[in-house]
C-alpha cells in the first residue's frame, strides 16, 4: 500500500518525509510499548503508536523502521522532527485512535507482522 494511501485512510498529515509519499509499505505494527517494537524482525513496516516522544523515533531508528504514524491526535515535537529528518524517516499525524487506525489499515490490506 502506498504511503499516500495510508495517509488518506488515516486522515493524517505527513509532517515529515512527504517526498516518500509513493513508497510501498507492506506491514503494520501497533504499539505504545517500545520494548515490544524492539523485538520485531520486519522490514518495510509502519509503526502505529500513540507514544509521541523521542524514544519512539529512537526505537524506530534502531529497528530500521522508516514509517511512523502518531495516532490519538498526538503531535511530533520539533525534537522528534529533527531526529526523524536526520534519519530519513516519515512521520504521520492522525486524529484516530490506535484501534481505529489499525482496523482501517488492516481492512485496507496492510499486513500484520504476526
Amino acid at each position: 500500500m502506498k504511503l499516500a494511501e495510508i495517509a488518506g485512510i488515516l486522515e493524517a498529515k505527513i509532517v515529515c518525509g512527504e517526498q516518500f509519499a509513493n513508497d510501498e509499505i507492506r506491514y503494520g505494527f501497533s504499539s505504545d510499548l517500545m520494548s515490544d517494537v524492539l523485538t520485531l524482525d520486519a522490514e518495510n513496516m509502519l509503526l502505529i503508536t500513540g507514544l509521541s516522544n523521542v524514544q519512539a523515533v529512537r526505537t524506530a531508528e534502531m529497528s530500521d523502521i522508516k514509517y511512523i504514524a502518531f495516532v490519538r491526535n498526538k503531535k511530533a515535537s520539533d525534537e522528534i522532527l529533527e531526529l526523524a529528518i536526520e534519519n530519513g524517516m516519515v512521520i504521520l499525524e492522525s486524529p484516530f485512535s490506535l484501534f481505529k487506525a489499525s482496523g482501517l489499515l488492516y481492512h485496507a490490506g496492510l499486513k500484520p507482522i504476526y
Binding site: 505504545d32 510499548l33 517500545m34 520494548s35 515490544d36 524492539l38 523485538t39 507514544l51 516522544n53 524514544q55 519512539a56 526505537t59
Partner: peptide, 9 residues
Amino acid sequence: EMGFGAGMG
C-alpha cells in the same frame, strides 16, 4: 511512560 520497562530488555 517512556515505552519501556516491560521486562524484555
